[in-house]
């Protein structure tokens, strides 16, 4: 397991999604969001390389998509919520993206997030 600074708000721990990132990731986001359509998901799953070849992506972007390099995609300007459409299509979730960013397995990520809850204030509401 890599060392993660859970308190850091700087990259690679946290990315603020800005306008320039949105411009850089324009084609990646358009590709990812095309996967909201079931027929496009089916086409992507049937032949990912053929599908992405129609999306005006660079070889490096295609490579990151096929390797499920979620962190790389984020750094290239894809938005987390767009990347999530790719992950959903290949049967993954936010856990997989988060674990990839933190450099750990999904199981390690889940065990690091115990989801504690202290309870509601007395007498609520």
């Amino acid at each position: 397991m890599s060392t993660v600074d859970w308190n850091s708000l700087d990259a690679p721990h946290t990315y603020l999604y800005t306008g320039p990132m949105s411009s850089a990731g324009e084609r990646l986001n358009r590709f990812a969001l095309s996967l909201k359509v079931p027929a496009n998901r089916a086409a992507f799953l049937a032949d990912a390389r053929a599908y992405v070849s129609t999306c005006s992506l660079t070889p490096s972007e295609v490579d990151m998509i096929t390797r499920r390099d979620w962190t790389g995609l984020m750094q290239a300007g894809a938005h987390l919520q767009a990347i999530l459409k790719i992950a959903a299509t290949v049967g993954e979730s936010l856990w997989h993206i988060g674990a990839h960013c933190a450099g750990m397995s999904v199981e390690q990520m889940q065990s690091a997030c115990p989801r504690r809850r202290d309870g509601l204030p007395p007498g609520f509401p």
Binding site: S22, E26, N29, R30, L33, K36, H79, Q81, A82, L84, K85
Partner: peptide, 9 residues
């Protein structure tokens, strides 16, 4: 919304 209705277009 989480890019499910709107897009960055």
């Amino acid at each position: 919304d989480h890019l499910n209705h709107f897009t960055f277009d």
